[in-house]
Simulated assay, not measured.
Amino acid sequence: MSDSGPSSIPEITLQGQGLTKVYHTGSVDVHALRGVDLELREGELVVLLGPSGSGKSTLLNILGGLDSPSSGEVTFRDMRISADDESTLTRYRRDHVGFVFQFYNLIPSLTARENVSLVTEIANRAMDPAEALALVGLAERLDHFPAQLSGGEQQRVAIARAIAKRPDILLCDEPTGALDSQTGILVLEAIERVNQEMGTTTAVITHNSVIGEMADRVLHFADGHVADYQENSLRKGAHELSW
């Protein structure tokens, strides 16, 4: 992440304040989030670490406008994101947020280029699909179908699809969870390249503590809240990680 001076602090891109989420299952209330406060700053890469069930995915879905909190507020720059304002919520998801999940969700009958084009056709400031695929190292695989690509390549197509609309925020939920370590590093390198070259504010969920070494900040989740937080002044590149 670039730094314009020793005392400069990037502006806040996305903020969550007092976020709670309660799921009602019969007579049981499940508290997925318990009053989370969080800031994502312009151009930084943040890793959210924690075991399964600690609330990470719930938080990411709320920050991305896929779910709404039981209480609390999400603010994107000066825009309040609320389930009560469906048009603002839809515009926020469409224009400002890119998602990458553990499973690639590519359409099998479409090539890599065509899978990415699905997003660029409805985006306001879209990249050329070939440019997005080149950014994640797939310039030579544009016309391959998902069945002709490895798992890591399919995940990189999913990343290209997410960034092709030039989102301000990239939210990644266990993007290497279904991959072996070497393939996972290639995927992380693609995410890091997007963060550095496009300046996209990026949050990555993982349970792998090693990935935290490539982040500007690491948030440790436990029992629905941020249990610990650390700045990472010795940020490594993804290729330097040793799983």
Rank of each mutant, 00 (worst) to 15 (best):
L33C: 00
T58S: 11
L33R: 06
E121W: 00
G212T: 09
F101H: 07
L38V: 15
R166I: 09
T202R: 13
G184F: 03
Q182L: 12
T183C: 05
E140F: 00
D223M: 01
R166D: 06
R166P: 04
R161Y: 01
P69F: 04
L142Y: 10
R41V: 02
P69E: 08
P146L: 05
T176Q: 00
M1Q: 12
L63E: 07
A178V: 07
V194I: 11
A238M: 04
V97T: 05
G5M: 03
M214L: 09
G237Y: 02
E11F: 11
L118N: 03
R193V: 04
D228C: 05
D173R: 03
D168Q: 12
P146R: 10
E11Q: 13
L186H: 11
S2H: 10
Q102R: 11
A238K: 13
V204Q: 01
Q196R: 15
E240Q: 14
R91G: 04
V157R: 02
E231C: 02
G26R: 02
S27N: 14
L60W: 05
G26C: 08
R156K: 06
V187R: 12
Q230P: 06
L138M: 02
L219T: 09
H239T: 10
D67C: 04
F103H: 08
F101S: 09
V119W: 01
V28L: 05
L241K: 03
S52G: 02
L60G: 06
L149I: 08
V187Q: 14
G177N: 08
T75V: 15
R125Q: 13
I211K: 01
Q15A: 10
A147H: 11
L14E: 06
E189M: 08
V218N: 05
V47M: 01
A130Q: 10
C172A: 15
V47E: 09
L48T: 02
D37T: 00
I185G: 08
T58F: 08
I169G: 11
A160M: 02
D29L: 01
R94D: 09
L170V: 08
P51E: 14
P10T: 00
L142F: 07
N208K: 05
L40K: 03
N195Y: 03
L118M: 15
L188P: 12
L33D: 00
R91V: 01
V28F: 08
L33V: 09
